[in-house]
Amino acid sequence: MDVRILQEAIHHLDPHLADHVNIELPLAEAVAQMQEVTSEHQRGMGALLVTQEDKLIGIITERDLVRRVISQKRDIKRLTAGQVMTAQPETLTAEDPIVFALNLMHFGHYRHIPLVDEENKPVGIITSKDIIKYISQFIKSI
């Protein structure tokens, strides 16, 4: 496996489109969206982007939900997306090299990285699984 494959742009990972919700959306509706099983998301979604005036302002991950809602026994019906999200997440663009994403995932312990355009509008999301899938093409098959 040649390290140069990690210098390719993130769009080579074929990122998922960015599913996003408004910061004011009731959390129950955001969670329902994450739980939805589709052909693209066969086990739901582990993260949802949060926007305000179409700009990325936060991310809600399954980890946030377990730690900030479930374990604290908070009532999901009384919360909004904005009250549970991780604010101002680290972002990349689809033109950044893949190694930037590895770097953020390793040092920031993130599993999801939002992709934004030059106006900070969400355009996609990549996960650590996308990276493993990409790398798997370049190593011995089983």
Binding site: V99, F100, R111, S128, I131
Partner: peptide, 20 residues
């Protein structure tokens, strides 16, 4: 886990990653 594999790869590419 996927996360630990990514960390393993990062640790074996220190030059490229740490000089970003």
């Amino acid at each position: 886990s996927v996360r630990h594999i990514i960390s393993y790869l990062i640790e074996h590419f220190p030059q490229e990653v740490l000089t970003l």
